[in-house]
Amino acid sequence: MSVPTSSPADLPAALPLVSVVIPLYNDARTLPACLEAVAAQTYPNVEIVVVDDASTDDSARIAERYPCRLIRQETNSGPAETRNRGAREARGEIVFFLDADVGLSPTSVASAVEQLAADPQVGSVCGITDKHPLLPTTKVGDYRILQSYYWRISSEGTVTPWFSALAAIRRALFLESGGLNPALRQTEEIDFGVRLSATHRIELSSQVVGRHNDEEQLSGLVRKLFRRARLRVPLYVDHRGFMRGFETRSRAVAALAAAGAVASLPLALLSPRALPATAALAAGAVLADRGFHAFLVRERGVGTAVAYTALHFAAGAAVTAGAAVGAGQWLLSPEFRSLYRRQAAAAASTDAATTDAPAGRP
């Protein structure tokens, strides 16, 4: 593996150093492909900062074989603190956050830098995960990759969510914005996106692309979606709506209808009289998200699209169930209602103390 060898004297004066910050936790399988893709970038002024969050596999030893700066955390601190640590340790004017299971296309860093330079009101440029996996995956993993790709490519432009798996941002702005909230898990990047969007635009760009691997087992995917939906409820209530440009009304309707179809299926199997209602809910779910289902047919054919539709229904049911549980928790728990307000206040009170001090994904 080789990295760009241009010295500072060889580089244009206006070409900023980009620190590619890779949070690492038990990513031994995908890390080599990730690092090799960074090394193949057309942008010449890059440093690679890998922050190992106390991995228990060979991830850190693999990273040592590559020309990167490896920072080891003594204890597991979670994804937010791991990325914060990388940003604090970075030397670049721009930080490009990259998950260790993502392999960048060769021009992604150059494109992100160009877009940030073109408009000072663009606070961050987030990338779109490709419709093909980084490494061979399961059917569940393939469905999830296609679903992530379609939702993002169809949402290209200005958005509210921030996607830390593929995100370029000026280092000073990231630190001034308070960074990611270490107290949050699964929703820390959504929280950061809301805060950043108050002052700057977040652009979702198809010029920044990476192949990745996602959840490969249905149980893991369902747990993740349920937890994220539950924890987002207080944030949605505080801001009176979904995340702009990504979570659309039609997608919410599709998830609700899919959940209804899944919930009513046992009754329909026991009583044929209930079958029309279940069929109507299933049809409504497909119609509300028909663009995605047509995309599945084009990409994988009718047979696979039908199987992936069943997975999509399970995902919609998990999201709906998580949101329902979150709504109940919001009604019953003042502590849960104030989750993001409380954490924001805590982050603001400690920001001055932590910005200049080194500190670091489950």
Rank of each mutant, 00 (worst) to 15 (best):
Thr82Gln: 01
Glu64Arg: 15
Pro79Asn: 12
Glu74Asn: 02
Ala100Asp: 07
Asp53Phe: 00
Asn45Arg: 14
Arg85Ser: 09
Glu89Ile: 07
Ala60His: 10
Asp52Ser: 08
Ile48Glu: 06
Arg65Gly: 08
Arg72Leu: 11
Arg72Lys: 13
Phe96Gly: 05
Val102Gly: 02
Asp58Glu: 15
Arg83Met: 11
Arg72Met: 08
Ala87Phe: 01
Cys68Gln: 13
Val95Tyr: 09
Ala60Leu: 13
Ala80Leu: 03
Glu81Asn: 08
Glu93Asp: 03
Glu74Ile: 00
Val51Glu: 06
Val102Leu: 06
Glu93Phe: 00
Arg85Ile: 03
Asp52Leu: 06
Glu47Tyr: 11
Glu81Gly: 05
Ile71Trp: 04
Glu74Trp: 03
Val50Asp: 10
Arg83Ala: 10
Asn45Cys: 10
Ala63Arg: 11
Ala54Cys: 15
Leu70Glu: 03
Ile71Asp: 04
Arg83Asp: 05
Gly78Arg: 03
Ala54Asp: 15
Phe97Glu: 07
Glu64Thr: 06
Asp99Ser: 10
Tyr66Gly: 03
Ala100Arg: 07
Asp57Ser: 02
Arg91Val: 07
Ala54Ile: 13
Asn84Ser: 03
Val50Trp: 10
Leu98Gly: 09
Thr56Ala: 15
Glu47Phe: 08
Thr82Asn: 00
Ser59His: 03
Pro67Asp: 11
Ser55Cys: 12
Arg65Lys: 09
Ala54Glu: 10
Tyr66Trp: 06
Val95Met: 09
Gln73Tyr: 05
Thr56Gln: 15
Glu81Ile: 03
Glu64Lys: 12
Gln73Ile: 09
Phe97Gly: 07
Gly92Asp: 05
Pro67Ile: 13
Val102Glu: 01
Ala60Thr: 08
Arg61Asn: 14
Asp57Lys: 02
Thr56Glu: 15
Ala80Ile: 02
Glu89Cys: 10
Ala60Trp: 09
Asn84His: 04
Arg91Leu: 13
Arg72Gly: 00
Ile71Leu: 15
Ala87Val: 05
Leu70Met: 02
Glu47Ala: 06
Arg83Leu: 12
Thr75Gln: 10
Ala90Gln: 11
Asp101Ile: 14
Ser59Asn: 05
Ala80Ser: 04
Asn76His: 11
Glu81His: 06
Gly78Ile: 00
Glu89Tyr: 08
Asn76Ala: 13
Glu93Gln: 01
Asp53Gly: 04
Asp53Gln: 01
Thr82Leu: 01
Val102Gln: 02
Ser77Trp: 00
Arg85Cys: 06
Asp58Phe: 03
Asn45Lys: 13
Val95Arg: 06
Pro79His: 14
Phe97Pro: 11
Glu74Pro: 00
Ile48Ala: 12
Glu89Gln: 10
Leu70Lys: 06
Tyr66Asp: 04
Arg85Lys: 07
Arg69His: 15
Ala60Tyr: 12
Pro79Trp: 11
Glu64Trp: 04
Asp58Gln: 12
Glu93Leu: 01
Asp53Val: 04
Glu89Leu: 09
Arg88Ile: 08
Ile48Leu: 13
Val49Asp: 06
Glu81Thr: 00
Val46His: 13
Ala90Met: 11
Ile94Trp: 04
Arg69Gln: 13
Arg88Phe: 01
Tyr66Cys: 00
Ile48Asn: 06
Asp57Met: 00
Val51Met: 02
Asp101Thr: 13
Phe97Tyr: 09
Ala54Asn: 15
Tyr66Phe: 15
Arg65Leu: 08
Glu81Phe: 05
Val46Thr: 13
Cys68Ala: 13
